[in-house]
Amino acid sequence: MPRAVDHEQRRFEIVAGLWQIVAEQGIEGVSLRTVAARAGVSMGRVQHYFGTKDALVVAGIDLLVKRAVIEYEATVGRPPQDRLLHILLQQIPATEAGRIGVTVWYAYVAKAMTHPAVREILAEATRVGVEECTRHIQEADGLDEAEARSHAVELLALSDGLTLRALIGDITAEEAEALIRACRSRPRRPRERG
């Protein structure tokens, strides 16, 4: 009897190899051959699942975003403040796996400058992040949509900046998290209308 093949698992194993290469050498270090070697599969298998280096690179950012969404969706049912903090703290490199993930993310951010498909995926992920943060801020703080959106953009920019500082070792992940939590402990109140 033929063995059942889990194609999604095989694709994931190849993309995990890609992420390791990107974390160590940047996207410039990616080739079908280097990824195949890192994933422990033949180059033919990589070509079978992805076809080209470009398709593999795009699949890598697509899967990275999808995995972040799955982690976020696991917070459904928690209070808005907790869900907001999940988004803001998710990228802080608090573990070695987190450091690899955020290193890969920022390699893709750089790639987005010259790669329209990567730019599109990152822009959509950013748009959704702003929308989700806006909604949670509205629920937690009672702000109108414009005020909540403005605060969401500020908080996400703070998270991005602190993530970069933690990534390069200027501050610790714990310090970055504490600064974000402190910022959120001072919720904004709706402006007086008049």
Rank of each mutant, 00 (worst) to 15 (best):
D6S: 04
E8S: 02
Q9V: 04
Q9F: 15
R11E: 12
F12S: 10
V15W: 06
L18W: 14
I21C: 06
E24Q: 09
G26S: 11
V30E: 15
V30P: 08
R33F: 15
T34N: 11
A36N: 03
G40H: 04
G44M: 00
G44F: 00
H48F: 14
Y49P: 08
G51D: 13
K53N: 12
G60K: 03
Y72R: 08
E73F: 07
A74S: 13
T75M: 09
P79Y: 03
D82R: 05
R83C: 03
L84K: 02
T114Y: 12
V118P: 02
R119S: 06
L122W: 15
A125I: 04
T126G: 01
V130P: 01
R135L: 15
H136I: 01
Q138F: 11
E139G: 03
D141S: 02
A146H: 05
E147I: 01
A148V: 01
S150L: 14
H151I: 03
A152R: 02
E154S: 04
L156A: 01
L158Q: 08
L158E: 03
L162M: 07
T163G: 07
L167H: 05
I168E: 14
E175H: 14
E175P: 00
A176M: 12
E177Q: 13
E177M: 10
A178F: 12
L179P: 05
A182E: 12
C183W: 13
S185Y: 12
P187I: 14
E192R: 13
R193D: 06
